[in-house]
Design a protein around this nucleic acid. Structure first.
Lengths: 185, 185
DNA sequence: TTCCATATCTAACGTACGTTAGGTATATAC
DNA sequence: GTATATACCTAACGTACGTTAGATATGGAA
């Protein structure tokens, strides 16, 4: 077995177990056992349990966030955001687990202060970024800022439903809800 | 110290620590230490760590949910739901922590299958209950069901923001977002 | 062949966990 | 006085944790 396989296998299993059992409820012994290797092999590839967890969030989770935030292009805002949610829904299983773990940390249900502050920095960037996209399309409507804020809340809930609760929504359902909030732009 | 004080103190501290550190990250030693009693005193009042956790969810959390779902009355739906969110925001600190722990279990970020199935039963009751309230007010609008669904998603996110992330929203902000979704009923 | 880097392991260290055994103290009733 | 119920404790049990020590095996280069 080459180093790439076992190192990645350990991380795959860690992502799964951290999601299911939390950081403290996941033991290195279980990870090693499911990876089919000995306990110190986990330490051969990852400095500590904490470093393994941090790498998943800092590298993998934020990698997904950045990638997803850069891959959209569309003419209409309803399409834009519908596709945004659809892309999340079409992430592969492993990526959804990473995303789910990220949300767990974002809600401060796991992880530590360092990771949480990274999350909060990202969160603070969301509203300005989306406002810049949306305001030109909302044509100086009096309630533009309210709609943007409401949309952010809705998107957050839809993503959470998909990623955390494994909910499945049709494209039509997603489009309808976003349309309600954007109000027939 | 009489039994009521120490038993309740233990639970108060458990709610706080289960929120902060999760079930597995919270030890009986820490609970006892912060309660100012010895370790076996926790067992004097609660059969096991698991029973303590279950009691918090089954008794305290569901107690709050049921109480909150029964205390609303209002003429307009926007007022109705605005008050619903305001009531959540005005829960006391301890109750918010219980609510937060409930959400943690609902998202299956903590707790076990038994608690999760209780959560899912409650969740399944939400949409029918709110549809029964809302449909008469939406006057046969073609998009009534979409609006209801969207509203449920929005409410979920607002509650989570308040309870989990300690966000503060003004009554006006809440009202505005609900109005967007209900569409000037 | 030897040397080095990489991969892998068993065993053990030091610490920590949930829970229980066995005991003491106090208040109340008889 | 004794007996009982309630509240509380120290010490210990049996088990488990994250991590390290020390060793072996393998492959490639010189």
């Amino acid at each position: 077995m080459n180093d790439h396989d076992l190192k990645q296998t350990i991380k795959n299993i860690a992502v799964d177990l951290f999601n299911k059992n939390g950081y403290h409820g996941t033991t290195i012994r279980t990870i090693a056992s499911e990876a089919g290797c000995s306990l110190p092999m986990v330490y051969y590839y990852y400095t500590s349990k904490k470093d393994l967890f941090h790498e998943i969030i800092k590298v993998d989770y934020f990698g997904i966030l950045k990638r997803e935030s850069e891959r959209l292009d569309s003419s209409s805002m309803v399409d834009f955001y519908t596709n945004f949610i659809l892309n999340v829904m079409h992430l592969n299983s492993y990526e959804k687990k990473i995303y789910r773990l990220g949300i767990k940390v974002y809600l401060s249900f796991d992880g530590d202060e360092e990771l949480l502050s990274l999350m909060e920095a990202w969160e603070a960037s969301i509203l300005p970024r989306h406002s810049a996209i949306l305001l030109p399309h909302l044509k100086g409507r009096a309630d533009a800022h309210i709609r943007i804020r409401t949309l952010m809340h809705l998107l957050e809930n839809l993503i959470e439903g998909i990623v955390v609760k494994n909910k499945v929504m049709s494209e039509e359902e997603i489009r309808q809800e976003i349309s309600i909030v954007l109000g027939g732009e």
